[in-house]
């Protein structure tokens, strides 16, 4: 018997080296059953290495990793039927249709009688059921990959960068599928370098950089703890707004579109600033008030951007 714990995944002092390269450096965390846990970090941070150790397909250099109470280095055969995986850069057989592919994977998990049509519905691929894999767009391929990850009705689902390389619309469609999963109460381990993805889907986010987990908590917590301010942006027409803000003791910055940006700690500061501008008769064309996001948290914690390009501009 394997002991059942409240945790789906327990990682204790995991380290993984590739020769001289320290890919994962002594990390520890737990994932509770039923939660969506996101590993957020830039390329090369060690996300895939960590998930693949948990999925039993890589061996750790040191540390202990337990999945559903079982040691991943010893219980591969017991673990595999209970997890579902969408690997990074998922791909399948070119000339096999959506339906046949799902059927194939469900046969690999012999004893499971997968509800093929249910899975096709779940990922919204009903119209494409007879399409061969090679004819699917990137987003459809990923959705098929998600359906396949679910053929054995797994207790824990791993999704390694499910939306990387997709255009914004395809990304949103994948997110819809993932929100459906979340509603079903599956334990999901997600890796991503899109903070919107982590923020939207995750109950707990672990920020990983250079093989280390540098912060962990709910998205709200992380923001609260690390970026507790409001960002105000004025679309300005003259330099007055900038001057007023400086005189009030804030630290406004001008961006290259001549917009004035300022960070304030409390909501009543916003009112104060607006009043001051009004009293001085200064003009502005527009105002944007925004809570900071995980991007800024990441920036603050590591001093570097999560990714070089915004997702929309990323080459496919």
């Amino acid at each position: 018997m394997t002991k059942e714990t409240e945790y789906a995944i327990e990682v204790d002092k995991l380290t993984k080296r590739y020769g001289d390269l320290l890919a994962v450096n002594d990390i520890s965390f737990t994932v509770s059953k039923g939660e969506v846990f996101a590993f957020l970090g830039p390329n090369g941070a060690g996300k895939t290495t960590t998930v693949e150790v948990i999925e039993t397909i890589r061996t750790p250099t040191s540390g202990k990793v337990t999945l559903l109470g079982m040691d991943v280095t010893k219980k591969k055969h017991d673990i595999v039927p209970r997890i579902g995986v969408l690997p990074q850069g998922f791909s399948s057989f070119d000339r096999i249709t959506v339906r046949e592919t799902i059927q194939y994977y469900s046969r690999l998990f012999c004893c499971m009688n997968a509800d093929i049509d249910g899975l096709i519905d779940l990922v919204n691929l009903k119209d494409k059921a007879k399409e061969q894999y090679k004819n699917l767009s990137g987003g459809l391929k990923q959705r098929l990959g998600i359906a396949i990850a679910l053929v054995n009705d797994p207790e824990v689902v791993f999704l390694d960068e499910p939306t990387t390389g997709l255009d914004p619309r395809a990304r949103h469609e994948v997110w819809e599928v993932l929100l459906g999963l979340k509603e079903k109460g599956k334990t999901v381990f997600l890796t991503t370098h899109y903070m919107e993805e982590a923020e939207l889907l995750a109950d707990t986010v672990a920020i990983i950089s250079k093989g280390k987990v540098i912060a962990m908590g709910s998205p709200g917590d992380l923001i609260e703890r690390n970026a507790n301010y409001l960002a105000l942006t004025f679309k300005s027409v003259d330099g007055k707004v900038f001057e007023i803000l400086r005189k009030m003791g804030f630290e406004p910055v001008l961006d290259n579109h001549k917009n004035v940006e300022v960070r304030v700690e409390h909501t009543y500061d916003v009112q104060k600033i607006l009043n001051a501008i009004k009293d001085a008769g200064a003009l502005y064309l527009g105002l944007d008030i925004r809570k900071p996001n995980l991007e800024e948290v990441f920036l603050k914690l590591t001093g570097e951007a999560l990714r070089e390009n915004p997702p929309e501009m990323e080459p496919k």
Partner: peptide, 13 residues
């Protein structure tokens, strides 16, 4: 090349 192997190694095959 296509990474099918990664997927297959997380199934009972």
């Amino acid at each position: 090349q296509k990474g099918i192997i990664r997927k297959l190694s997380t199934t009972p095959i």
